[in-house]
Computed example of a mutant assay.
Amino acid sequence: MITLREGFEAALVIAIVLSFLDGTGRRGWFRAVWLGVAGGVVVSLLVAIGLFAVGAELEGRSEEIFEGTVMLVAAALVVWMVFWMRSRSRTIKRELRERVDDAVTHGSALAVGLLAFAAVLREGVESALFLVGSVGDSNPVVAVVSAALGVAAAVALGYVFYRGAERLDLRRIFHVTAVVLVLVAAWLFSGGVHELSEAGVLPESEALSAVAFLALSLPALYVLLLHDRLRTRLAHVPRDA
């Protein structure tokens, strides 16, 4: 789920960029985009390998503090990413096209390539943090296969968007995945609190992890599931009702 959502956000950016270049007769600039994508993937993999290597070298209390900190940072990034994309889902297509148009106007293939690089790198680094925090003692083969399936699904969705952008309901996709990711974030937050408790940084308490899970998930789910519905209903109520 993590790599599906993160990968799709990157694939969405690339699809919009390629679609705009294709529509303006600049397919020759595709090479710059794919070079940017390749660079972002390579740097993201290096970051992921580095994080996993650091975690593998640590033992005892240091390992617990490292894992707990990574989990908390990952949880914060998940929540930020969910609500940032929620606020930008209506305008991201227009904004990206304006940025590509500006780069094309100034004849800068490098700017287009850097846009693709930044999109992939941001989502790749976030995915690396999430995976380091969530994999833990899981079977590494299962973790790699599931992450690869998420990336493959994200690429497929990106291709569908590229081929028929107007027919893909982005808001519905982001809404469904947002709910799942909020629960993932709450689980990561709870796990981080648990690791720091075991390390002695926080008080030892089984209830603390449960409280942490509820403290993050309930407000976030309220905003995602209920707040918007209430605003929509109120907006349709006649003023003199």
Rank of each mutant, 00 (worst) to 15 (best):
residue 151 V to I: 15
residue 181 L to S: 06
residue 204 E to H: 11
residue 120 V to I: 14
residue 77 L to I: 08
residue 66 F to W: 13
residue 138 S to G: 14
residue 196 L to S: 02
residue 184 V to E: 05
residue 30 F to T: 12
residue 3 T to I: 11
residue 58 L to V: 10
residue 155 V to T: 10
residue 62 S to N: 13
residue 189 F to I: 00
residue 37 V to W: 08
residue 146 S to D: 15
residue 9 E to S: 07
residue 94 R to M: 12
residue 114 L to C: 06
residue 16 I to M: 14
residue 134 S to C: 04
residue 171 R to E: 15
residue 236 H to S: 14
residue 63 E to I: 03
residue 111 A to T: 12
residue 216 L to M: 10
residue 117 F to K: 01
residue 28 G to M: 07
residue 20 F to V: 12
residue 184 V to I: 04
residue 229 R to Q: 15
residue 65 I to E: 08
residue 196 L to V: 05
residue 22 D to V: 09
residue 37 V to F: 09
residue 224 L to A: 06
residue 167 R to C: 04
residue 87 S to W: 06
residue 87 S to C: 01
residue 202 L to W: 00
residue 115 L to F: 09
residue 162 Y to N: 01
residue 75 A to Y: 00
residue 12 L to D: 14
residue 33 V to G: 08
residue 207 A to C: 02
residue 181 L to V: 01
residue 125 V to P: 08
residue 59 E to R: 14
residue 43 V to L: 14
residue 118 A to T: 11
residue 220 A to E: 12
residue 186 A to G: 02
residue 106 H to G: 11
residue 197 S to E: 09
residue 114 L to F: 11
residue 117 F to Q: 04
residue 91 T to E: 13
residue 210 A to Y: 14
residue 9 E to N: 09
residue 125 V to H: 01
residue 177 T to M: 02
residue 228 D to Q: 15
residue 220 A to K: 10
residue 84 W to T: 06
residue 105 T to P: 01
residue 137 D to A: 13
residue 233 R to V: 11
residue 62 S to R: 11
residue 63 E to W: 11
residue 85 M to I: 10
residue 198 E to L: 06
residue 219 P to H: 06
residue 79 V to L: 07
residue 202 L to I: 09
residue 28 G to A: 10
residue 41 V to S: 04
residue 212 A to G: 03
residue 7 G to F: 06
residue 74 A to P: 00
residue 194 H to R: 13
residue 58 L to R: 13
residue 106 H to P: 07
residue 196 L to N: 02
residue 144 V to L: 10
residue 122 R to G: 12
residue 190 S to G: 04
residue 91 T to A: 09
residue 218 L to M: 12
residue 141 V to E: 06
residue 9 E to R: 09
residue 124 G to R: 01
residue 88 R to W: 00
residue 22 D to C: 01
residue 90 R to W: 03
residue 238 P to S: 12
residue 35 L to V: 14
residue 159 Y to E: 15
residue 107 G to Q: 08
residue 60 G to D: 15
residue 104 V to I: 09
residue 240 D to M: 06
residue 40 G to A: 03
residue 152 A to Y: 00
residue 26 R to H: 14
residue 206 E to P: 05
residue 77 L to Q: 08
residue 115 L to K: 07
residue 44 S to M: 02
residue 207 A to P: 02
residue 114 L to R: 11
residue 200 G to D: 02
residue 1 M to L: 12
residue 1 M to W: 10
residue 5 R to A: 08
residue 32 A to S: 14
residue 192 G to P: 06
residue 203 P to D: 00
residue 3 T to H: 14
residue 103 A to F: 05
residue 16 I to H: 07
residue 193 V to H: 01
residue 170 L to I: 13
residue 130 F to I: 11
residue 4 L to M: 09
residue 218 L to K: 05
residue 203 P to H: 03
residue 180 V to L: 13
residue 120 V to Q: 06
residue 40 G to W: 05
residue 187 W to F: 10
residue 193 V to C: 01
residue 69 T to I: 03
residue 127 S to E: 07
residue 233 R to L: 13
residue 214 L to N: 09
residue 233 R to E: 13
residue 52 F to C: 10
residue 205 S to A: 05
residue 29 W to L: 12
residue 117 F to G: 02
residue 212 A to I: 05
residue 194 H to G: 03
residue 39 G to V: 00
residue 147 A to I: 05
residue 173 I to K: 05
residue 3 T to C: 12
residue 165 A to S: 15
residue 46 L to T: 09
residue 184 V to S: 00
residue 220 A to L: 13
residue 48 A to K: 09
residue 204 E to Q: 13
residue 86 R to D: 15
residue 130 F to E: 07
residue 172 R to A: 15
residue 197 S to M: 01
